[in-house]
Amino acid sequence: MTNTLNEAPLGGGGADAAFGSTEVVRLESVRKVYGGGRNAVVALDEVSVGLRQGSFTAVMGPSGSGKSTFLQCAAGLDRPTSGSVVLDGVKLASLGENRLTKLRRDRIGFIFQSFNLLPALNVRDNVGLPLRLAGRRPDRAAVQEVLERVGLGGRLHSRPGELSGGQQQRVAIARALITRPAVIFADEPTGALDTTTAREVLVLLREAVEGAGRTVVMVTHDPVAAAHADRVLFLADGRVAGEIDRPSVEQVAERMTRLGAAGANR
């Protein structure tokens, strides 16, 4: 697979080039409760964490630990019961639904396990879709460039059904990159892929961080996937249960085993 994500960012450098210390996402005392009374379920319990610009963070934890809720609240897909989320300098609680939708469209990229491509659209139109939804005409040169970066420059006119799972996920990565987002949220992006293809996708995400200064937040259950991140954040019972910087597969697997054992003993 040929890709050049380590080239200059789409649309030039500027502020994107100065990354590394600013928090692009901040959750402060975030609590999320579903239901009420005896049926209330606390999915997140006073979570406070910051995610730096130009970083790659993996979020892990046992089943029911709050990983998906963390991603949904951080991305503005769900509103916390209490606490605050600041994304790209904007406090999400201050936004109405229309402005929140615009922020997600303009400043956030999403990658899902199921790819979420539109089968009736070809690759070029799938990648340009976020721009069309924002009322902007996709620049064909920019779409071509981002597809070249993920190794699909020759598949502009193919439809999703003509592509392998790995190729479809690369289209999804290109779609996430086309708006030059502040953050890319990835929910189990390698969950439906074989080992070799998963590694290719993780390399692309890594290069999006190192080459283009994007911030990636990835929910995963896979220690191998998590080891591609700069940092692994662990959740358990809706709370932050630790983190590892510059993780190895062995470190992540050992921590997950301990968290699973602790949950089984409660």
Rank of each mutant, 00 (worst) to 15 (best):
A253E: 14
E97V: 12
C73D: 00
E254G: 11
G13A: 13
G64W: 04
V219F: 09
G161F: 07
G83N: 01
V41R: 04
Q251R: 12
L27H: 08
V252F: 05
R31A: 10
M1W: 15
T4Y: 12
G109V: 04
V240D: 14
I111T: 03
E243M: 12
T81N: 06
G11N: 13
R239F: 14
A212E: 15
R132L: 10
F70C: 06
L129Q: 04
V224I: 09
D88N: 12
A261Q: 11
G263Q: 15
T195V: 11
S164T: 12
S68Q: 06
G64E: 03
L103F: 11
R107Y: 13
G166E: 06
G36R: 12
R104K: 07
I244D: 07
R79N: 10
A40V: 08
G151D: 04
A120E: 11
N122C: 04
H221N: 02
R258W: 15
Q72K: 05
R258Y: 15
I108G: 06
R105A: 09
R206C: 11
E243F: 14
A241M: 12
V216L: 01
L193H: 08
V240Q: 15
V232D: 08
A15P: 02
S63M: 07
R124W: 08
K102N: 12
T197A: 10
T4W: 10
Q53E: 11
A229W: 11
E23S: 10
G35S: 07
A186M: 02
R266P: 14
T57M: 11
D194P: 01
